[in-house]
Amino acid sequence: MSERDSGSSGRAKTQSAARASFGAFVRKPVERPAADAQKAPAAQEMRAESAESWPDDAVEVGAIVDAYGLKGWVKVAAHADAGQGGDALLSARRWWLENGRERKSAARLQAKVHGDSIVAHLGGPADRDEALALRGYRVYVCRSDFPALGTDEYYWVDLLGLDVVNEAGVELGKVADLIDNGAQSVLRIEYAATGKDGKPVTGERLIPFVGVYVKTVDLAAKKIVVDWEADY
Protein backbone atom coordinates (compact mmCIF):
# COMPACT_ATOMS: atom_id res chain seq x y z
CA MET A 1 0.00 0.00 0.00
CA SER A 2 1.29 3.50 -0.61
CA GLU A 3 0.49 7.25 -0.58
CA ARG A 4 1.12 9.69 -3.35
CA ASP A 5 2.81 13.74 -3.93
CA SER A 6 -0.68 17.59 -3.39
CA GLY A 7 -0.66 17.97 -2.82
CA SER A 8 2.94 18.89 -1.28
CA SER A 9 2.44 17.51 -3.61
CA GLY A 10 2.57 13.91 -2.90
CA ARG A 11 1.30 10.46 -2.98
CA ALA A 12 1.65 7.77 -0.41
CA LYS A 13 1.75 4.08 -1.11
CA THR A 14 1.71 1.62 1.72
CA GLN A 15 3.75 -1.41 0.93
CA SER A 16 5.01 -4.48 2.68
CA ALA A 17 8.54 -3.78 1.45
CA ALA A 18 10.90 -1.98 3.78
CA ARG A 19 11.18 1.14 1.63
CA ALA A 20 8.34 3.23 0.31
CA SER A 21 8.44 4.62 -3.21
CA PHE A 22 6.80 7.94 -3.84
CA GLY A 23 7.47 11.38 -5.23
CA ALA A 24 5.94 14.80 -5.55
CA PHE A 25 5.52 14.51 -9.26
CA VAL A 26 6.57 12.35 -12.15
CA ARG A 27 9.81 13.80 -13.42
CA LYS A 28 9.39 13.52 -17.17
CA PRO A 29 11.04 16.16 -19.38
CA VAL A 30 7.96 16.67 -21.48
CA GLU A 31 5.82 19.67 -22.25
CA ARG A 32 2.11 19.23 -21.93
CA PRO A 33 0.18 21.73 -24.01
CA ALA A 34 -3.30 22.06 -22.60
CA ALA A 35 -6.45 21.84 -24.66
CA ASP A 36 -6.99 25.45 -23.59
CA ALA A 37 -4.20 26.47 -25.94
CA GLN A 38 -6.45 25.58 -28.85
CA LYS A 39 -9.38 27.61 -27.53
CA ALA A 40 -10.34 31.21 -28.26
CA PRO A 41 -8.00 33.87 -26.81
CA ALA A 42 -10.64 34.94 -24.26
CA ALA A 43 -10.49 31.51 -22.63
CA GLN A 44 -6.75 31.95 -22.16
CA GLU A 45 -6.87 35.32 -20.40
CA MET A 46 -6.11 35.64 -16.71
CA ARG A 47 -9.20 36.54 -14.75
CA ALA A 48 -9.96 37.91 -11.31
CA GLU A 49 -11.59 35.52 -8.84
CA SER A 50 -13.54 35.95 -5.61
CA ALA A 51 -14.28 33.77 -2.60
CA GLU A 52 -17.54 32.81 -4.30
CA SER A 53 -15.89 31.76 -7.58
CA TRP A 54 -13.00 29.95 -5.89
CA PRO A 55 -13.38 26.14 -6.27
CA ASP A 56 -14.34 24.24 -3.14
CA ASP A 57 -11.76 21.52 -3.84
CA ALA A 58 -8.79 23.86 -4.45
CA VAL A 59 -5.55 22.43 -3.03
CA GLU A 60 -2.35 24.44 -2.67
CA VAL A 61 0.42 22.70 -4.61
CA GLY A 62 3.17 25.29 -5.02
CA ALA A 63 4.23 28.92 -5.28
CA ILE A 64 5.49 31.10 -8.11
CA VAL A 65 9.07 32.04 -7.26
CA ASP A 66 10.40 33.68 -10.41
CA ALA A 67 10.02 34.36 -14.11
CA TYR A 68 11.45 31.89 -16.61
CA GLY A 69 12.79 33.18 -19.88
CA LEU A 70 11.50 36.25 -21.68
CA LYS A 71 8.10 35.16 -22.99
CA GLY A 72 5.93 35.24 -19.87
CA TRP A 73 6.75 31.83 -18.39
CA VAL A 74 6.83 31.42 -14.61
CA LYS A 75 8.91 29.20 -12.36
CA VAL A 76 7.09 27.30 -9.61
CA ALA A 77 8.39 25.61 -6.48
CA ALA A 78 6.09 22.61 -5.97
CA HIS A 79 5.22 21.51 -2.46
CA ALA A 80 6.88 18.14 -3.01
CA ASP A 81 7.61 17.46 0.65
CA ALA A 82 4.02 18.43 1.67
CA GLY A 83 2.67 15.76 -0.64
CA GLN A 84 -0.23 17.81 -2.24
CA GLY A 85 -0.03 16.45 -5.77
CA GLY A 86 2.69 18.46 -7.50
CA ASP A 87 2.17 16.44 -10.65
CA ALA A 88 -1.25 18.07 -10.94
CA LEU A 89 0.59 21.24 -11.99
CA LEU A 90 1.45 19.47 -15.21
CA SER A 91 -2.04 18.20 -15.94
CA ALA A 92 -4.56 20.72 -14.56
CA ARG A 93 -5.97 22.91 -17.29
CA ARG A 94 -6.43 25.86 -14.95
CA TRP A 95 -4.29 27.21 -12.13
CA TRP A 96 -5.78 29.22 -9.28
CA LEU A 97 -3.51 31.91 -7.84
CA GLU A 98 -3.67 33.66 -4.47
CA ASN A 99 -1.55 36.37 -2.91
CA GLY A 100 -2.99 37.87 0.27
CA ARG A 101 -6.57 38.82 -0.55
CA GLU A 102 -5.99 38.90 -4.30
CA ARG A 103 -7.15 35.90 -6.26
CA LYS A 104 -6.77 35.10 -9.95
CA SER A 105 -6.93 32.12 -12.26
CA ALA A 106 -5.28 31.36 -15.56
CA ALA A 107 -5.30 28.64 -18.16
CA ARG A 108 -2.20 26.47 -18.11
CA LEU A 109 -1.03 26.54 -21.70
CA GLN A 110 2.20 24.60 -21.24
CA ALA A 111 4.13 23.15 -18.30
CA LYS A 112 7.20 21.00 -17.84
CA VAL A 113 9.62 19.86 -15.17
CA HIS A 114 12.81 21.92 -15.10
CA GLY A 115 15.40 20.73 -12.59
CA ASP A 116 13.84 20.80 -9.13
CA SER A 117 10.98 23.06 -10.17
CA ILE A 118 8.21 23.35 -12.72
CA VAL A 119 8.06 26.04 -15.38
CA ALA A 120 4.84 27.00 -17.07
CA HIS A 121 3.30 29.31 -19.63
CA LEU A 122 0.00 30.66 -18.34
CA GLY A 123 -2.70 32.54 -20.15
CA GLY A 124 -2.11 36.24 -19.46
CA PRO A 125 1.58 37.05 -18.93
CA ALA A 126 3.17 37.93 -22.27
CA ASP A 127 6.67 38.93 -21.20
CA ARG A 128 9.17 38.60 -18.37
CA ASP A 129 7.96 41.69 -16.49
CA GLU A 130 4.38 40.40 -16.37
CA ALA A 131 5.63 37.02 -15.20
CA LEU A 132 7.75 38.66 -12.48
CA ALA A 133 4.61 40.42 -11.22
CA LEU A 134 3.26 37.00 -10.24
CA ARG A 135 6.10 36.18 -7.85
CA GLY A 136 4.76 35.31 -4.42
CA TYR A 137 1.44 33.94 -5.65
CA ARG A 138 0.50 30.57 -4.20
CA VAL A 139 -0.69 28.08 -6.79
CA TYR A 140 -3.76 25.89 -6.32
CA VAL A 141 -5.34 23.27 -8.54
CA CYS A 142 -8.64 21.49 -8.14
CA ARG A 143 -8.43 18.14 -6.38
CA SER A 144 -10.54 16.75 -9.23
CA ASP A 145 -7.66 17.59 -11.59
CA PHE A 146 -5.13 15.43 -9.74
CA PRO A 147 -3.89 12.50 -11.87
CA ALA A 148 -5.45 9.12 -11.11
CA LEU A 149 -3.48 6.83 -8.80
CA GLY A 150 -2.79 3.13 -8.83
CA THR A 151 -4.10 0.52 -6.42
CA ASP A 152 -3.32 1.28 -2.77
CA GLU A 153 -1.92 4.72 -3.60
CA TYR A 154 -3.20 7.82 -1.81
CA TYR A 155 -2.59 11.53 -2.03
CA TRP A 156 -1.41 12.97 1.26
CA VAL A 157 -4.12 15.60 1.18
CA ASP A 158 -6.76 12.83 1.21
CA LEU A 159 -5.30 11.25 4.35
CA LEU A 160 -5.32 14.40 6.46
CA GLY A 161 -8.07 14.40 9.07
CA LEU A 162 -8.84 10.68 8.82
CA ASP A 163 -9.58 8.82 12.05
CA VAL A 164 -6.99 6.21 13.01
CA VAL A 165 -8.04 3.11 14.99
CA ASN A 166 -6.25 -0.13 15.76
CA GLU A 167 -7.53 -3.58 14.97
CA ALA A 168 -9.17 -3.81 18.39
CA GLY A 169 -11.19 -0.69 17.62
CA VAL A 170 -9.24 1.61 19.97
CA GLU A 171 -9.23 5.19 18.69
CA LEU A 172 -5.69 6.53 18.28
CA GLY A 173 -6.44 10.01 16.96
CA LYS A 174 -6.58 11.81 13.63
CA VAL A 175 -3.98 12.24 10.89
CA ALA A 176 -2.55 15.74 11.31
CA ASP A 177 0.33 15.48 8.84
CA LEU A 178 2.63 13.14 6.97
CA ILE A 179 6.40 13.14 7.27
CA ASP A 180 8.96 11.92 4.75
CA ASN A 181 11.89 10.51 6.71
CA GLY A 182 13.82 9.50 3.61
CA ALA A 183 12.98 5.81 3.88
CA GLN A 184 9.20 5.96 4.07
CA SER A 185 6.23 8.16 4.83
CA VAL A 186 5.11 8.46 8.45
CA LEU A 187 1.64 9.32 9.72
CA ARG A 188 1.70 12.02 12.38
CA ILE A 189 -1.38 11.46 14.51
CA GLU A 190 -2.73 13.88 17.10
CA TYR A 191 -5.06 12.97 19.96
CA ALA A 192 -6.50 14.58 23.07
CA ALA A 193 -4.56 13.80 26.25
CA THR A 194 -4.08 15.08 29.79
CA GLY A 195 -0.79 16.59 30.94
CA LYS A 196 0.95 15.95 34.24
CA ASP A 197 -0.67 19.09 35.59
CA GLY A 198 -4.11 17.72 34.77
CA LYS A 199 -4.67 20.16 31.92
CA PRO A 200 -5.69 19.02 28.43
CA VAL A 201 -2.84 18.69 25.93
CA THR A 202 -2.43 17.37 22.40
CA GLY A 203 -0.62 14.06 22.19
CA GLU A 204 1.24 12.78 19.15
CA ARG A 205 1.84 9.35 17.63
CA LEU A 206 4.10 8.54 14.67
CA ILE A 207 3.17 5.45 12.65
CA PRO A 208 5.14 4.40 9.54
CA PHE A 209 2.88 4.28 6.50
CA VAL A 210 3.86 0.78 5.47
CA GLY A 211 1.84 -2.39 5.08
CA VAL A 212 3.16 -4.08 8.20
CA TYR A 213 1.42 -1.41 10.31
CA VAL A 214 -1.28 0.12 8.06
CA LYS A 215 -3.90 -2.51 7.33
CA THR A 216 -6.70 -0.63 5.57
CA VAL A 217 -7.39 2.88 4.33
CA ASP A 218 -11.08 3.64 3.80
CA LEU A 219 -11.44 7.11 2.31
CA ALA A 220 -15.22 6.84 2.15
CA ALA A 221 -15.44 6.04 5.86
CA LYS A 222 -12.59 8.48 6.63
CA LYS A 223 -10.79 5.81 8.63
CA ILE A 224 -7.41 4.10 8.73
CA VAL A 225 -6.99 0.79 10.57
CA VAL A 226 -3.51 0.07 11.91
CA ASP A 227 -1.68 -2.66 13.81
CA TRP A 228 -0.58 -0.36 16.63
CA GLU A 229 -1.25 -0.24 20.34
CA ALA A 230 -2.26 2.90 22.21
CA ASP A 231 0.67 2.60 24.63
CA TYR A 232 3.39 2.30 21.97
Rank of each mutant, 00 (worst) to 15 (best):
M1A: 03
E3L: 10
E3W: 07
R4T: 05
S6N: 06
S8P: 09
S9T: 11
R11D: 09
A12L: 08
K13D: 01
Q15K: 03
S16N: 15
A20Y: 03
G23R: 12
F25H: 14
K28E: 05
P29H: 08
V30N: 00
E31Q: 12
R32W: 15
A34I: 06
D36L: 13
P41Y: 12
A43Y: 15
E45T: 12
E45P: 07
M46L: 09
A48S: 01
E49F: 10
S53W: 05
V59M: 05
E60M: 11
A63Y: 06
Y68E: 05
V76R: 02
V76M: 12
V76N: 01
D81W: 09
D81H: 13
A82R: 15
G83C: 05
G83Y: 04
G86E: 06
D87C: 03
A88I: 00
L89W: 04
L89K: 11
L90M: 15
L90D: 02
W95E: 01
W96L: 11
E98A: 06
G100K: 13
E102T: 15
E102C: 11
R103H: 13
K104N: 07
S105Q: 12
A107Y: 09
Q110F: 11
Q110I: 06
G115E: 08
A120V: 10
H121P: 01
G124P: 10
P125Q: 02
P125N: 04
R128S: 07
E130I: 14
A131K: 02
A133N: 04
L134N: 03
V139D: 03
V139H: 01
C142Y: 02
R143G: 00
R143Q: 08
S144T: 12
S144G: 10
L149P: 08
G150H: 15
V157Q: 11
V157G: 01
L159R: 03
L159H: 02
G161M: 15
G161V: 13
G161K: 12
G161R: 15
V164H: 10
V165D: 12
V165A: 10
N166D: 14
E167V: 07
A168G: 12
A168N: 14
G169D: 14
V170W: 12
V170Y: 14
E171W: 12
G173I: 10
K174N: 01
L178N: 01
N181A: 00
S185W: 11
E190P: 03
E190N: 10
A192P: 00
A192T: 07
G195V: 04
K196L: 08
P200V: 10
T202R: 04
G203H: 00
L206R: 14
L206I: 05
I207F: 07
F209L: 13
V210N: 07
G211F: 08
V212G: 02
V212W: 05
D218W: 04
D218A: 00
L219D: 03
A221R: 15
K222Y: 01
D227Q: 15
W228K: 08
D231H: 14
Y232T: 04
